[in-house]
Computed example of a mutant assay.
Amino acid sequence: MILPPDMVIFDCDGVLVDSEPLTNVVMRNNLARHGLDISLDRITELFVGGTMMGVMQKSRELGADLPEDWLDAIYAEMFDVLAQEVELIPDIKAVLDALDAAGILYSVGSNGPHRKMEITLTRTGLMDRFRGRIVSREDVATPKPAPDVYLKAARDAGIAVDRCVVVDDSPSGARAGQAAGMITFGYVAQSDRGRMTPVCDRLFTSMKDLPGMLGL
């Protein structure tokens, strides 16, 4: 592991913006209205780090009666809540400041759609820092845990994969980072450490620790 890297690629939800507690509640309440009443812990276990198409397919398998327009409806609910309530992950701005000071590139690689990131990054004041360096699962053939989003982020920046660090908070995202051949740090402030340990090079619980871990 040679640090500091030439580039850091951040997942968005749960790493840059504290969106997952908000969207998990929206999902739980919506699925309950459609016949699948499961706990927030189960929502996290099943769905965090995946895609909403995957949520729809799995929920139907578990018995939810979801209409054909469910994706549009759930996104509308989520976007409304995020536009009003989402906040930054604590101390992430200091991490970005440290990367800027060190001249290290950074970008976003997310399973979320561009519209969602436009809402969350704009509300939290990060959009100008990432504009033009945001890769969504909409831009690639296969979402995480495939490595596509991270490989595209590195390719777009002209950075070798072995000079990139991925920061993700889900097992799916961490597997994507490893599959891309990148150093993978797991942010586990709200994640299951046991599920993250096998798929990360290192774990951490506070963004205050990340600059040091990156060798800054």
Rank of each mutant, 00 (worst) to 15 (best):
M56I: 13
M127A: 15
V81T: 06
A141N: 06
G109S: 08
L22M: 11
R137H: 09
T184G: 05
M213K: 12
S172P: 03
T124V: 14
T205W: 08
E20W: 06
G103H: 09
C12R: 02
R60D: 06
F79T: 04
M52R: 10
S172C: 12
P143V: 03
M196R: 05
K58M: 08
R155K: 13
D100Y: 14
V167H: 02
D80V: 07
V188R: 07
V149M: 04
C12P: 00
P113M: 11
D169S: 08
Q57W: 06
G177L: 03
D148N: 06
V167W: 01
L3Y: 08
A180F: 04
V149E: 01
L36M: 10
L216K: 03
C12W: 01
D41S: 14
R193N: 09
I43S: 02
D37M: 09
F130K: 03
D168I: 00
T184C: 07
K93M: 09
R42D: 15
I43E: 00
M182C: 10
I74T: 15
A154I: 05
V55I: 08
L22K: 09
R28W: 11
I74K: 11
A154V: 05
A32N: 12
L126W: 01
G50E: 06
S110A: 07
P21R: 09
L151W: 02
V15R: 00
Q84M: 11
P67C: 12
R131T: 13
T124E: 05
G49Q: 00
L22T: 10
D148G: 00
R193L: 13
T184M: 05
E20K: 14
R137M: 10
V140S: 05
P113F: 05
Y75K: 10
V199L: 04
L3P: 04
I38P: 04
V81P: 00
C200Q: 02
L88F: 11
D72H: 13
M196H: 07
L16C: 10
R33A: 12
G63D: 12
G212E: 14
S206R: 13
F79K: 06
W70V: 02
V149I: 15
L216D: 05
I9V: 15
R163F: 07
P198G: 01
I119V: 13
A64Q: 02
F130A: 04
A180S: 14
V95C: 06
G103M: 12
R155H: 13
E61H: 12
D148H: 04
V55M: 11
M117N: 04
N30I: 06
A157W: 02
L214K: 00
Y106A: 03
L105P: 04
L210V: 06
I43F: 08
S39T: 15
T142A: 09
R123I: 01
L62T: 07
V15K: 01
L121D: 01
V199S: 03
D41M: 13
R137I: 13
F204D: 03
R202N: 07
V8P: 00
R129G: 12
V26S: 03
G132M: 12
Q57L: 08
D168T: 00
D169I: 04
D100C: 14
L96Y: 03
E87N: 08
M196L: 15
K93T: 15
G63E: 10
